[in-house]
């Protein structure tokens, strides 16, 4: 039994040295979607392909989730152990803006235009004790 599994299949390439988000591209109009779709939300075509969407982008907008959400949020946390998390839309190289949790969780560390990088993080454990993994973005290291 694996120690870690993706929370949902097909959202990102993982495990991998450099995980990236996976989406779809319409073979007719070229528009991208995340998560991938069998039909295109722009033109309605049913001809789409799965493509890598990359692992970096810039922060388009953001907020901070300051209290623990109720259902459908599913977590091992309690209101006492809950840590606020950032939420934002990250603009990817193809132009698509993907909604994501952000590692940064204070207004001082978030700004529109910030360079962001993808990371794969555990969200919670399932009943078998397997860690379920999802994606989030964090501010890119300044090199």
């Amino acid at each position: 039994m694996a120690d870690q599994l993706p929370l949902h299949p097909g959202l990102f390439s993982w495990p991998s040295k450099r995980p990236e988000l996976l989406g779809s591209r319409c073979l007719e109009c070229g528009e991208h979607a995340f998560p991938s779709q069998d039909s295109c939300r722009a033109c309605g075509s049913e001809q789409t392909e799965i493509v890598g969407l990359g692992h970096s982008g810039t922060l388009w907008t953001w907020t901070v989730q300051s209290f623990m959400p109720k259902s459908p949020y599913l977590t091992d946390e309690t209101p006492e152990t809950f840590r606020p998390y950032g939420v934002g839309y990250v603009e990817l190289p193809c132009g698509l803006k993907v909604e994501s949790r952000l590692r940064e969780n204070s207004p001082d560390s978030l700004a529109i235009g910030l360079d962001m990088e993808l990371e794969i993080i555990p969200v919670r454990c399932n009943d078998e004790g397997t860690q379920l993994m999802t994606f989030q973005f964090c501010a890119a290291e300044v090199s």
Partner: peptide
């Protein structure tokens, strides 16, 4: 379900963003 389970399905977040 992943979208709600990971804490992204809140109208308050959308309005804020």
């Amino acid at each position: 379900d992943w979208y709600g389970e990971t804490g992204l399905m809140l109208t308050t977040q959308y309005f804020a963003m």
